[in-house]
Design a protein around this nucleic acid. Sequence first.
DNA 1: CATATTGTTTAGTGTCAGCTAAATTTCTAG
DNA 2: CTAGAAATTTAGCTGACACTAAACAATATG
Lengths: 225, 225
Amino acid sequence: METSEAVDDYLKAILELGGAEDSRVTTNALAERLGVRTPSVTGMLQKLASQHPALVRYERYRGVRLTANGKRRAWELVRHHRLIELFLHDVLKYSWDEVHEEAERLEHFISERFEDRVAAILGDPEVDPHGHAIPPKHEAGPYRAEVPLVAWPLHKPAVISSVSDRNAVALRELERLGLMPGVALTVEQSTPAAFAVRVQARSSPVRLGNDLAGYIQVAATDRRP
Amino acid sequence: METSEAVDDYLKAILELGGAEDSRVTTNALAERLGVRTPSVTGMLQKLASQHPALVRYERYRGVRLTANGKRRAWELVRHHRLIELFLHDVLKYSWDEVHEEAERLEHFISERFEDRVAAILGDPEVDPHGHAIPPKHEAGPYRAEVPLVAWPLHKPAVISSVSDRNAVALRELERLGLMPGVALTVEQSTPAAFAVRVQARSSPVRLGNDLAGYIQVAATDRRP
DNA sequence: CATATTGTTTAGTGTCAGCTAAATTTCTAG
DNA sequence: CTAGAAATTTAGCTGACACTAAACAATATG
């Protein structure tokens, strides 16, 4: 019952494309995310379903979903990924935009021991450098009420909760603009193509295209006393 | 001109089996070392020779040797391996016998950047936890006058220069016996099957089987003033 | 509600790196 | 210097996991 590198990639992708909420994930979406053609996805899903029925539920023409086991395994990989990202950033002094690619490669090959030691060194951290929650060992990621910035109402105060780690160029740009997790902002203006957000402690509003804005997730400002 | 994980393994194995001194390495020896059948080795060598003629020189029935390029690449991998071992030991607090297996997996997947950062954190170290020299970046490993303990003359003072990292069980045993790099000793007695060595700062001689002794390399005591 | 478009699956290939069985070459001992 | 043993290579397969082209479902629109 080993699980190969490729299988791992599929499980993680399914999780990140909606499997976390038990929704069906389509062949197309997977192909897109994994940078692979759709027939390859079909083939892999069939194999996955027949060889690891405990991990996924697959129905012809209707997509896949993860079983409880499948979710556990996928969250484990996400934990690996995010721990490695934080480790690269904090210990090996990688910059924000450099960590994803390396983590993506390494996450498949580290042992339990490596995971544990890294977590210990980092003090059992809860958030990675992009603001994503690091799920505790053996647990699913916590639910967090994130909303894409592009769907946030005008003028309502928000905090950037996370940014996607998948595009290094975009990350560099976001950093330059001061748009990082924890930063408070309000949306001043939004057109189909662009955005103006007012960032706390910045005199003039920041303008950014929809493409960039798409990488940002926000949440309501937390005002517990 | 990419070089795959498997190719890397072959290059490193060739180096470690004598390629470092330009001697021919046999199909058999490679198969043994890599845990693979001989026909697989033949196949791989043929492919290697035809696709990467700049790395190896292969002659049917007469083994392989590394070219200058091949050696450079192989030493790079050795550097990776040893840096990772030291890193796991010093930073992640792995024990002596745990580092090899993990390093063996990770060495293929780390980037230049990872290598550089780790080297920096460790202060450009020169020796790994088993006493093996870490070759400087872009250079071949230094020549070191090591001799297998089993070939060392009786009563002549020696220092353990390195121990093989490839057998975790043996490593634990050696640690228990206090036989680690840097330890001074003399061989008191040797039979075809066993050994008695007197270790500095130990009252009674240590007895060890030829199998264990085979993992130890020694050098003449250095007495530069 | 029939057809066009989109999404998904089947069929057939290719590459990589391993394997076994059998043929061949080289080495070694008498 | 030749027979037998040992080492190496060839031939032919296997299992992953990708791909293209073509068939087939599902959905969306006029």
